[in-house]
């Protein structure tokens, strides 16, 4: 086992910004090519290492490229330049309950969602009780998920995703809808993860949470890595740039 879980190596990711809605045949034919565009750099030559067994925070203002970076980690986007190497199985929670079918019961959706996340039927069956227990929606498990409250939806989705049992867990701000009890439950789960020597990478706008949970953080600003290192100093620098006094 190496002591680095994820290596982000000079990653650059650009998006094409189109000047008009281009996805119609007419405009393509009129112009003789698909589109006029310019490139927008969402990530600009970002490099850092995430130590194995740490809880790593990613902070920055809206639109600074945090989700983009996580998507590159999760093989949803592919960087234009640079490379991301990870050591161990990675699972990403960019949104919970993706692929839930509203008319199907919670139970059916657990199996469906589990397999979308890469679990075999056997895995899901084995962990089914644990998932239901963690989600706390046992009473409604045979109800169609469209009748769930948004918090219950997130709870169930999170409970499935956390049971994928990866070595590296990547979490975008998905916990905002859960109540305080559930959030605490999730943070406890992250601590268990850490205790088991696994790595968690999380994005949050709540500095107290990041402060409490993370050992290391990276701060992105308009796609540029401003600072990476111990949580405390990075957060301080970030808050200072916002003219907010840290508590």
């Amino acid at each position: 086992m190496s002591d680095i879980a994820v290596r982000v190596d000079h990653v650059t990711k650009s998006f094409r910004m189109y000047h008009e809605r281009n996805q119609s045949l007419k405009s393509a034919i009129m112009r003789g090519r698909t589109s006029v565009h310019e490139d927008f750099l969402a990530l600009d030559d970002v490099s850092f290492d995430v130590p194995a067994g740490s809880t790593f925070g990613l902070i920055g203002s809206n639109g600074s490229g945090k989700s983009t970076l996580l998507k590159c980690l999760a093989n949803i986007y592919y960087p234009n330049k640079g490379a991301i190497t990870h050591f161990g199985k990675i699972a990403a929670m960019l949104e919970v309950g993706s692929g839930f079918h509203a008319e199907l019961s919670g139970r059916d959706n657990v199996f469906l969602n589990g397999s979308i996340l890469g679990m075999s039927r056997k895995d899901v069956t084995r962990k089914f009780d644990e998932i239901i227990d963690f989600s706390g929606v046992e009473q409604f498990i045979d109800q169609p998920v469209k009748n769930y409250s948004s918090g219950m939806y997130v709870r169930l989705g999170f409970a499935i995703a956390i049971n994928v049992d990866p070595d590296i867990l990547v979490v975008d701000e998905v916990l905002a809808v859960g109540d305080a009890e559930f959030q605490e439950k999730c943070f406890q789960k992250f601590r268990d993860f850490k205790a088991a020597g696994k790595t968690v990478i999380l994005v949050s706008h709540s500095m107290p949470t990041v402060q409490a949970m993370c050992d290391q953080t990276a701060w992105l600003d308009h796609g540029v890595l401003k600072a990476a290192g111990p949580a405390k100093s990075t957060i301080k620098a970030y808050l200072k740039s916002l003219n907010v006094e840290p508590d």
Partner: peptide, 11 residues
């Protein structure tokens, strides 16, 4: 139709 899924999960 599954754009959301494609943008959020890798499979």
């Amino acid at each position: 139709d599954n754009a959301n899924l494609i943008q959020k999960v890798s499979f």
